[in-house]
Nucleic acid binder design. Structure first.
Length: 500
RNA sequence: GGGGGCGUAGCUCAGUCUGGUAGAGCAGCAGCCUUUUAAGCUGUUGGCCGGAGGUUCAAAUCCUCUCGCCCUCACCA
């Protein structure tokens, strides 16, 4: 059992002494941060505070010093037997690190100058029956801090209890999302909700999670891999500026920058193209960075990043030329295939050969690792971008950009394809290319969504559409290593309880 | 899926190379200490050493399999 016998026994003893270890409410007058901020005014004043005990230092039979921690601060308590009834003092003797208590008392300073609350009343707010592994700390140094990463991910609540910084990561995450909303609302975008459960998935190239709807004769359904197609239906329906912040689900690899479920923001704006949106993207992100960091420059893990607009703009072909020293336009299909084999002998080159996919391959292998500062990679090959308008003046490319920071793709955007006839052909072409992957894993990656084709058939105005990976932005702004650090409850393999 | 690392008490770790039957600090428990703050001092309870099998007189330690986590490569066109 996960409970600790001695703690369960203490809970029972509290109950037997007439003390409710799990009461209904407690009224506080201040947070601990407020007490520190208003220190001068509060000395010798009565306050009521609540928090979790993080240290207990008994001093003889009559006195305890304790540390109390609330959401973002910690303060010392002074507990003296003479101030309490025997029943409460008995309860105090049954307290452990990790228990929640409410304190009414006076603010004072000890002779060593430590701001302290002299407790005159103590209310047990919650008796923990699982031992809480709170670390000790001296200044910045921490001792015995939980370091088992598996435990910190599986039991995130434990991570938050034991590490104020882990709590702060969630606060910053919330502030980022809030700043994004504010920016979009200031520009008169309408926040809309799109379905998580869909009968046809689309808008990205990814394998979906499958489920079924019992009430609809076990109709097969999928979890959204992207909100793109429903958002475009909003545009068709006459909403000129829409955005959504939602979970996407992709049944693919899990690693430091991929969780099966992740948070995406997408927006669509009628009458604009990708050039307009590139500017809007750097405006949005630099505004958010400035709001969170106080500046458009900050350091991520020893790397100084500068988000000040304008960001570098580089076409995908120029990027391959610059970092890979390859001029794709001067190379034949055979030469490209040879180059791919050279970079990855295992790679299964599709037949028929696709220059578009070859360019994508070369970009990933030669360029991505160099994209540290915020950079827009633009003008991708048509073959890998079925939802995008052809580039004006070059029908083999499309009007698309992907912003990169710290080698991570943090977004994706297009001049959206609005010609319904061409859209239908392009989706069918993509599906034909998928025959290649169907052979490999038996999954049809891209069913053609006829409803979507019909929607844009009703007339879709020119539209710029943009996606932004929220989790990856949070990784950068919270200086974390992994997407697991910024997703509250990342997906892990089921624990085998019988093995424990 | 490949390669590497890790898994020992509630927590942090030692012990593994060179098998000899499990240790420390903190927490807990019993005391001492009426302003301490990683409080201190004395004593003390905790562990089927992730799981299963094997080798051996003897396995935390060596071997095989297996579960989980981390890193990395691949996959994710």
């Amino acid at each position: 059992m996960v409970f600790h016998d001695d703690l369960v026994a203490k809970r029972q003893q509290l109950i037997e002494k007439g003390i409710d270890p799990y009461p209904y409410s407690f009224t506080t007058t201040h947070t601990l941060t407020q007490i520190r901020q208003q220190e001068q005014a509060l000395i010798e004043k009565d306050v009521a505070v609540a928090g979790r005990l993080t240290a207990l230092r008994q001093q003889g039979k009559q006195v305890f010093f304790a540390d109390l921690e609330d959401f973002d601060n910690r303060i010392q308590l002074y507990l003296k037997k003479a101030n309490f009834t025997d029943a409460i003092w008995d309860a105090i003797l049954l307290l452990d690190i990790g228990d929640w208590v409410g304190i009414q008392g006076k603010v004072f300073k000890t002779k060593t100058g430590e701001l302290t609350i002299w407790a005159l009343q103590l209310t047990v707010l919650s008796k923990a029956v699982v031992r809480v592994p709170i670390s000790k700390e001296k200044g910045e140094k921490k001792f015995y801090q939980v370091s088992d990463e598996e435990m910190l991910y599986r039991q995130r609540y434990l991570h938050w209890i034991t590490d104020r910084e882990a709590r702060q990561t969630m606060v910053i995450r919330a502030k980022i999302i809030s700043a994004i909303r504010r920016f979009m609302e200031n520009r008169e975008f309408l926040e809309v909700t799109t379905p998580t459960l869909e009968l046809i998935y689309g808008g990205a190239s990814a394998r979906p999670f499958e489920t079924q709807v019992n009430a609809l004769s076990n109709q097969k359904a999928y979890l959204r891999i992207s909100p793109e197609l429903p958002l475009k239906k909003f545009i068709v329906g006459g909403f000129p500026k829409v955005f959504t912040i939602c979970q996407n689900f992709r049944n693919e690899g899990v690693d430091r920058s991929h969780n099966p479920e992740f948070t995406m923001m997408e927006w669509y704006e009628a009458f604009t193209d990708y050039q307009y949106q590139m500017k809007q993207f750097e405006d949005l992100v630099s505004t958010v960075v400035k709001e969170i960091k106080g500046d458009t420059k900050f350091t991520y893990q020893d790397t100084a990043l500068d988000f000040t607009p304008p960001w570098r703009r580089l076409t995908i072909l120029d990027a391959i030329l610059e970092y890979g020293k390859l001029d794709v336009n001067q190379l034949s299909d055979a030469q490209l295939a040879a180059k791919i084999k050279e970079l990855d002998p295992e790679f299964d080159i599709p037949d028929p050969f696709s220059r578009g996919h070859a360019i994508d391959f070369l970009f990933e292998h030669l360029v991505e690792e160099h994209l540290v500062q915020p950079t827009f990679i633009m003008d991708h090959p048509l073959a890998i971008s079925p939802l995008t308008k052809k580039k004006r003046g070059n029908p083999e490319l499309v009007e698309r950009f992907e912003p990169f920071v710290m080698r991570m793709e943090i977004g994706n955007a297009y001049s959206e394809l609005t010609d319904p006839v061409e859209q239908y052909e392009r989706l069918k072409a993509q599906r034909a290319y998928d025959a290649h992957s169907i052979k490999q894993d038996g999954v049809v990656h891209h069913p053609v969504d006829i409803d979507f084709i019909r929607a844009i058939g009703l007339g879709m105005p020119p539209t710029g559409g943009v996606g932004l990976g929220i989790d990856r932005l949070v990784i950068l702004l919270t200086n974390q290593n992994s997407i697991r650090d910024v997703i509250a409850f990342p997906l892990l393999r089921a624990e085998d309880e019988t093995a424990k």
